[in-house]
Simulated assay, not measured.
Amino acid sequence: MTAPSDHLLRAHAPIPTESWKAIDEEARERLTPLLAARKVVDFVGAGGWHRSAYSLGRTAPLAGPPPGVAGATEVRTRARRVQPLSEIRVPFTVSRDEIDDVQRGAADPDFDDLARAARVAAEIENRAVFHGWPAAQIEGIADTTPYPSAALGEDCLQWPGIVARGVDALRRNGIGGPFALCVGPALYTKIVETTELGGYLLLDHLTNILGGQVIWSVGVDGAVLVSARGGDFVLDVGQDLAVGYSHHDADTVHLYIEESLTFRVLEPDAAYVLTI
């Protein structure tokens, strides 16, 4: 999370400084373990709320200069291509009684709705990165990889061999490691609970194959094997995740978690999809 900016209207909220601090700390604690995509892609930002687009470094031809310009038959005109950042706003509420209790020194504030909003915001970011967001002009990592996906199957003792073949496919195409395996929560639980013959943990076996991490990733369908060497994927963030103020009544303060972002796959060969 970044420092709040004026457009978040926090100064208008009936929330004292100490309670704002508690809300921000809770949001940070909830969001940090959920933001799996940021562990494997390059992060650009935060560019601020005013940042509107990511430059693609490419152009598209224009029909010509403005009509009526004399002697412009040889003029070459092109438009710069950009990818717009999209805005995310996830609302949540905080009880005014809870805010008062924080001011009294309560060390265990009830911010359950903030926890829900943090999970939703993180899942939106993760899914945009791994599975795309067509309405926001974002192609995800799983959408662009050129390799046919591989099915993990039900027998998790076969997974090390399947992951190893995925790693080999990346290396054969000149993609270096370390590698990371981003897996959905249910699949991750199955991995950490499984012990192979001889008492060897499946998680340890996969980690050795990857030379990197198996990452618990909310919002990921199946698993996505990616190179974590850097330079292959770019998450461009304008407004980083921050808490803003909407309105309030006698009992409740209405807040939101906000972010603006876009995502680009620079090297499609650097990812391999594993289905359940």
Rank of each mutant, 00 (worst) to 15 (best):
H131V: 05
A164Y: 03
C156K: 10
E125A: 11
D155R: 14
A106T: 09
D108A: 13
R165K: 13
A122L: 10
A135P: 04
C156Y: 08
E139I: 00
L170H: 06
V129Y: 07
D100R: 13
G166L: 07
A122H: 11
V129S: 12
L157N: 13
A115F: 03
P148W: 00
D108P: 00
I141K: 09
A164N: 13
V163E: 08
D101A: 14
P160N: 08
A117I: 07
I138N: 06
D112H: 11
V120Q: 10
C156A: 12
G166E: 09
H131E: 15
L152K: 05
A150I: 04
A106K: 12
R172W: 00
Q103M: 14
I162D: 08
D108Q: 12
I124T: 14
L157T: 15
Y147T: 08
G176Y: 01
Q137L: 11
V129R: 09
P148E: 13
I175Q: 07
W159E: 11
N126Y: 06
D155I: 08
D143Q: 15
G176F: 02
R172H: 04
G105T: 06
D155V: 13
D113A: 12
A136E: 09
D113Q: 15
V167I: 11
W159Y: 04
Q158V: 05
I138K: 05
R171T: 11
D110N: 14
D110I: 03
I124G: 01
Y147M: 04
D155N: 15
T145K: 05
T144I: 00
G105K: 04
G161Y: 05
P146Q: 08
A164I: 00
D155E: 14
I175E: 12
I141F: 04
A142K: 02
I141T: 08
G132S: 10
I124M: 05
G105N: 09
Q103K: 10
